[in-house]
Design a binder for these strands. Structure first.
Lengths: 298, 298
DNA sequence: AGCATGAACTTTATCCATAAAAAACAACTT
DNA sequence: AAGTTGTTTTTTATGGATAAAGTTCATGCT
């Protein structure tokens, strides 16, 4: 059966809105709620029904108003708000990164399905999606081959990344003065310096900034293939960092400084300087990834 | 139920081998046949059983020998030798390229499933695989968006293609003299000149040569992401040419000449000359694609 | 021991079923 | 007419079943 994670997530969202007082007094219409929560009206109605049922809101003469205060245990647990497909992704990445999965291993859909507690269909869909990351390969009628999260992989990944980023950074710097992206860039620079000041406590926030920055650079001259490639990068780094916490603060601090240098270079519009800053930053990102891959191979 | 296309294809293959006399006299062991036909022994045995049943081979004391002559209607029809997934691909491409499918259309899994006569699962798997081509996009819980086989698509595609090909051609030219790829390149050049002489009748063969050539260039310094990207190119061109036959001979002749110039440039190892030949060729490939896209939009 | 066949077992490709979520339709209300 | 809510229809996400194809185990023959 399809999971009701959409509903549960929406319910939690609504509960938070009630708690924060965003929905104080008389509630907005179903359509308005639908827009705010980005789900269908069908789901909104389901949420409202449950809210009424739990007395979190009251309904009289077709008018809805806030009810009793929201309690911590009114919320559905987080695990129930993520769709199966996402769980499969997480479990697979865990299996791949933490397990002793060696390059050349073959991947068995049925086995993973049993291990993860889902139907084979879900596994297969995930693997098809995941195959674009270049880490697995399908052999028809036989199964999937795990090619390994190896040094070679990282080298190939970064070769492309450098090509793309140099191209995007160059085009970014050639934008007209009045492009709104310059403003965004300045804002991002500020966010960087702020984070740098509070690096001791907030170093986890770097990841989001990193993403925003690299995506911004691509925005100047969009290319869907470059965007898609950056999805791979994000994905890999997301899980990689989840797994490798070593020196995180130190690494993020260094990267922040590199970003700032890179932003300065962009603002200078000096091609050679931009290329240099870009290469420096990517080289250190690559070195970080490579170091942990070597750790993996032990 | 799973289709028995593997068996049917293997059967046809075996029938052809019998007909060509490749299996004259006493037949090889099941294992040997398995190796030659690239299927499992289970399938080989199924084929053998049917061959015996039809008297195409005889079996006595566990020894198998050729039987009656193979007839044209011993073969299974071609359509039955292609798996469902491939059919879906073909039908989808037909739907996309020939139908009046406009950019922005949303794709309905259920509708396509009904139209193509397959389960929704098959459609969905295809769409996931196909999504890497940048022509469709998934919106969770809602469906797929067809972004259109547009001019913009072609521009983005070729921007990447040029970057990758310049990089690969450059690295190719820097290989040591004794690299076996130089021999392959010379052989390919010969194949080009031969085809050029017989262009009037054999112009369809260009497609295969084109593929071999571009893949060869990538071989010098392999990168899985570049290979994957070239899969997109091949796929697009495969279907595109199937649909657009206009001026095919003329176009292929021109491309052959460009290839030859490009090969000469590579052999000269002169960077500037290589880049020029590469750009020239890709520019004309791009122009061809663009012309037919414009035709599509009418 | 090494290879051939036979039989049993496992995994993939494919279809079908169904609850959840989205969308479309209908009837009201202001 | 535009925005509400109630109802019905359609579509997606997910589980389950099964024949085909692949793999492994067992037996027998040189």
């Amino acid at each position: 059966m399809r999971t009701d994670t959409v509903y549960k997530k929406a319910f939690n969202r609504a509960a938070s809105m009630l708690r924060d007082g965003q929905l104080a007094g008389e509630l907005p219409s179903e359509n308005e709620l639908r827009r705010r929560m980005c789900v269908s009206r069908t789901t909104v109605r389901k949420v409202l029904r449950e809210l009424v049922h739990r007395d979190l809101i009251t309904e009289r003469d077709g008018l809805r108003a806030t009810g009793r205060a929201v309690n911590d245990n009114d919320y559905y647990p987080d695990a129930e708000t993520t769709p199966r497909a996402k769980h499969v992704e997480q479990q697979f990445m865990e299996w791949m990164l933490r397990g002793d999965t060696r390059p050349g291993t073959s991947i068995n859909e049925l086995e993973l399905a049993r291990q993860f507690g889902v139907a084979t269909n879900g596994i297969r869909e995930f693997l098809i999606r995941f195959s674009r990351f270049g880490l697995i390969e399908k052999r028809p009628n036989i199964g999937w081959l795990f090619k390994g999260f190896t040094e070679e992989f990282a080298l190939e990944l970064f070769e492309i990344r450098v090509m793309f980023e140099l191209r995007s950074a160059h085009l970014f710097s050639q934008q007209p003065d009045h492009s709104p992206l310059w403003i965004k860039l300045a804002a991002l620079k500020l966010a960087h310096t702020e984070l740098l000041e509070q690096i001791e406590t907030r170093f986890h926030d770097f990841s989001s900034l990193d993403n925003q920055f690299h995506r911004l650079i691509n925005e100047a001259s969009p290319n869907r293939f470059i965007d898609d490639f950056y999805d791979i990068i994000s994905f890999i780094f997301h899980y990689h960092y989840q797994w490798n916490k070593k020196d995180e603060k130190q690494r993020n601090k260094a990267a922040l400084l590199e970003h700032i240098g890179y932003i300065d270079a962009l603002q200078s519009r000096n091609s050679a300087r931009i290329a240099k800053a870009c290469r420096t930053h990517l080289a250190s990102a690559k070195a970080t990834l490579m170091r942990s891959l070597i750790a993996l191979e032990e």
